[in-house]
Amino acid sequence: MKKFALVLFAFICFAFAQDKNANRIIEKIKANYDIINDYSVEIKGKVDFPDAVIPELKAKIFFKKPDKFKVESDNFMIIPRQSIKFYPDILNEKDYSSLILGEVEIDNLKHFIIKLISNNPEVEEVVTIWVNSENFTIRKMNLIGSRIGKVEIEFFYKFFDGKYWLPEKMTATFEASKILFPRMRRFDKNQKENSGQVQEGKILIQYYNYQVNRGLEDKIFEKKK
């Protein structure tokens, strides 16, 4: 019994320490973005979606803390929400658990692997992030949920204005079958049945001309009626 109590104590201490370490890393991640009050950036996007042809997108993103954003474009495209905020929504929540799963080398740099689980039982998504140990940017993000399937996002950063780590490129890989386009019936062809195989979709976004902390006005984000 004593032995069991000892093991349990050790595990709780480990978990607490883990949590504390993870929180420290997350604080550093947040610090990276806390200094960005607003930004605008031009993007070029490309979607590779099975059975879909979507041309290259040109758009302009406007973002203002805490969560105002606007994507200005005449083109059609699908983009991940994280391509605007650069970090998972769960980090905005107050009640979540984090756990360091380990470390891994990416591009010869040490990265922490952290699992983030919401304590809200209605949120079923599990997020894993790969955090650069030097600048505390999120290099990779992995989102898993029954509704969205598996989404993997990678960011490639650049240091702007000697102050801000911001992505210059983002790639997202996702399960295409989870994104259901309503389709019309075509009379001249028998519609193919879905084969049931998991097909991957990919999105590539490149960012240009960041304008950070220029004091974007709120009216930019007002929706046109």
Binding site: F76, I78, I79, P80, Q82, I179
Partner: peptide, 28 residues
């Protein structure tokens, strides 16, 4: 259609652009 698409996209994706526009209506 846009709403169906938004719903199907889940929380992780955004639809950008004026999807249900005049051309779309002309097409349907």
């Amino acid at each position: 259609y846009q709403r169906i698409l938004d719903r199907n996209m889940g929380d992780q994706f955004l639809i950008v652009g004026n999807l249900v526009n005049g051309w779309y209506v002309a097409f349907i």
